[in-house]
């Protein structure tokens, strides 16, 4: 169960438990993260359940839905101007500094979750999601595919599955605007285009991705992923976020490539409820020349 509503609950739990095991966090301690998305919610779930304070630093441009959710969870929210990563006041860097300062003062410890480069994230998926997939497919999984944000899921699951069976194919699904597709295909970090998906798409090799056993990569444009999101609603009843659309579109491509009699696994990262203003907004989609849910088209 993902009580925070996304796969990031797993990463959050792994990061916090790792900090506990290393003695960095004791009841009453503080968890700090710079995140605009699901990881903040996941950390708040874990923090609340385990008795830690959660401080989330976000760019002030973030949607009100996201801020409201974090506030509802009782998170201490710090809003900073939206500036590029190279700026020392970027929200991620700011959260790192804040965590270091708090670690000095807090009697029960403070940690910087640092989901991108904290490999407890990847280890969590190696220990939990990987074995889950192996068990639930009775070891008959032929391939695993998903997108990378931090890279924790694909690296952790990939490593576990490869250890069970080196033939399992690990296929990265990269949205447009991310640089990993070119890296795994041609050895060069290079991005092109853009995507409306959130929480995935990476421009660098994070510590979590470093050494990940990725066999091959697909580049999935939004034009391909969105119809999949809409199909999942109409045919499966599942209202999911854009990253799930990228993942399922990749699984479909992989299924076609591998042909009949293969078992392919992917993850559905979160529900679509947080994306109503973009993913399910015909005006927004039309403005980007993207596919619109057929039932939302004017006159439908």
């Amino acid at each position: 169960m993902n009580p925070g509503g996304s796969i990031k609950d797993r990463a959050a739990l792994a990061i916090v438990e790792d900090a506990e095991a290393r003695g960095l966090l004791r009841p009453g301690g503080v968890i700090v993260e710079g995140t605009a998305g699901n990881t903040g919610i996941g950390l708040a779930v874990v923090g609340n359940a385990k008795g830690y304070r959660t401080v989330i630093v976000i760019p002030e441009t973030q949607s009100q839905e996201k801020k409201d959710m974090l506030l509802a969870q009782g998170v201490e929210l710090i809003q900073v101007p939206a500036v590029p990563y190279r700026d020392p006041n970027n929200y991620v860097k700011y959260s790192g500094r804040l965590a270091a300062e708090l670690a000095e003062k807090e009697p029960n410890g403070a940690i910087w979750a640092n989901q991108f480069d904290n490999t407890a994230n990847r280890t969590g998926h190696y220990r939990q999601l990987g074995p889950e997939i192996w068990r639930q497919t009775d070891g008959e999984v032929d391939a695993f595919t998903c997108a990378a944000g931090t890279g924790g899921t694909i690296a952790g699951v990939g490593q576990y599955l490869k250890e069970q069976n080196p033939k399992v194919r690990i296929q990265l699904a990269d949205p447009m605007g991310a640089a990993l597709y070119h890296f795994y295909k041609h050895g060069e970090l290079k991005a092109e285009g853009s995507s409306i998906t959130e929480g995935i798409g990476q421009g660098r090799i994070t510590a979590n991705l470093d050494g990940a056993p990725i066999d091959d990569a697909y580049q999935i444009p939004d034009e391909e992923a969105l119809p999949v999101v809409f199909d999942l609603i109409r045919r499966e009843g599942l209202v999911l976020g854009g990253s799930s659309g990228i993942n399922v579109a990749s699984a479909v491509r992989l299924a076609r490539e591998l042909g009949p009699d293969h078992t392919i696994v992917t993850v559905l990262c979160d529900s679509g409820s947080r994306y109503t203003s973009r993913l399910f907004n015909p005006t927004f989609l039309a403005g980007k020349h993207l596919p619109i849910p057929p039932w939302m088209k004017p006159g439908a």
């Binding site: 491509r253 076609r256 490539e257 042909g259 009949p260």
Partner: peptide
Amino acid sequence: PRLNNFLVRDLEQ
């Protein structure tokens, strides 16, 4: 290219 191997059969299949 986006291979669709559902449309191809080989000797072993």
